[in-house]
Amino acid sequence: MTSVKTDADEIPAKHAIKAIPVRHYGRWVSAVAVLVLLAALIAAFAGANIQWPITGDNLFTSASISGAWHTLLISVCAMALGLLLGVLAAVMRLSQNPVTSSVAWGYIWLFRGTPVLVQLLIWWNLALIFPTMFGVSTNTLITPFVAALLGLGINEGAYMAEIVRAGIQSVDEGQAEAAHALGLSRAKTMRRIILPQAMRVIVPPTGNEFINMLKTSSLAYVVTYGELMTKAKDVYTNNLAVMELLFVACFWYLVLTTIFSIGQYYLERYYAKGATRTLPPTPLQKIKTNLFSLGRAR
C-alpha cells in the first residue's frame, strides 16, 4: 500500500490555512483544579502516620523482588491454563454434540458460580477428603504452587470460555461457509479461519483478565504461595509496618500491570491486522499528538 500522508504534506505552502485556533479555556481551568487537588492529597499523605523510609527500604529487598517474580509466574501460568481451558470449553460449548456442550456448560456454571477464594481453599485442603491420589499422598501432590495454579487457572478458564465464545460468535457466518466450501474440515476452519478472527474480539478482554489475574493472584497467600501479598504479610507480621508493606506490594502490582497494559496495546494492534486499512497510532505517537493538541490550547 501507499504510505499514509498527512494533509499538511500535500497542501502547497501558498494555500496553507493560517487560522486562529479555537481557544480551549476549559482545559486550563480543569488542569489547575486537578493540580490543586493533587497537591492537597500529597500533603495529606506526607503528614500521615506513615514511615515512608520503611516503604522505600523494602521496595527492592530480595523478598519483594521474589514476591513480584512469583506473582508474575503464577499469573502467567494460571492465565495459560485458563486460556487453554477457555478455548476448549468455548469450542465444546458451541459443539453440536449435546454431551460435549453440556459438559462445558456445567464447568462454566460451577467455576464461575463459586468464589475463587473458596476454590483455592478447596484445592489446598483436598487431602482432607482424598488423603492419597494416584497412589501418592495428596499433600505432596498439592504444593502451594499447584493449589494456586489449579484454583486460579480453572476458575479463569470458566471466564475465558465466555470471552472466547463471544469472540467465535462475532465472526461472520460467511467465513465458516467459505472455508467449508473450500473443503476445510471443521477443526481446521476453527483453528485457521475462525479463531484468528475471533482474536480481535478476544484479546482486549483477555488483557483485562490478565491484569485482573495479576491482582487476584494475591489471594494465593491463603495457600502460602510466595507471591507479593504473602511476602508483604511475612514482613509486616514481623515489623508491624502494615501500611508501609502494603504500599510496597502496591508499587510492584502497579509496575506489573503497567508493563502488561502496554503489552496488551501492541497485541491488540497486531490482531487488528487486516481489519482496518491503517493501524491505530502507537502510544508514543498518541502522546505526541496529545501534547500537540494541548499546546494548541494556548
Partner: peptide, 20 residues
C-alpha cells in the same frame, strides 16, 4: 469435505478471509 473439494463456490459478499 472431500466432496466439496471438487466444487468451488463464489459468494455474493465475497467472504474472503480478512486476516490473510
Amino acid at each position: 469435505a472431500l466432496q466439496r473439494r471438487d466444487i468451488g463456490m463464489v459468494f455474493q459478499r465475497f467472504n474472503l478471509f480478512p486476516h490473510m
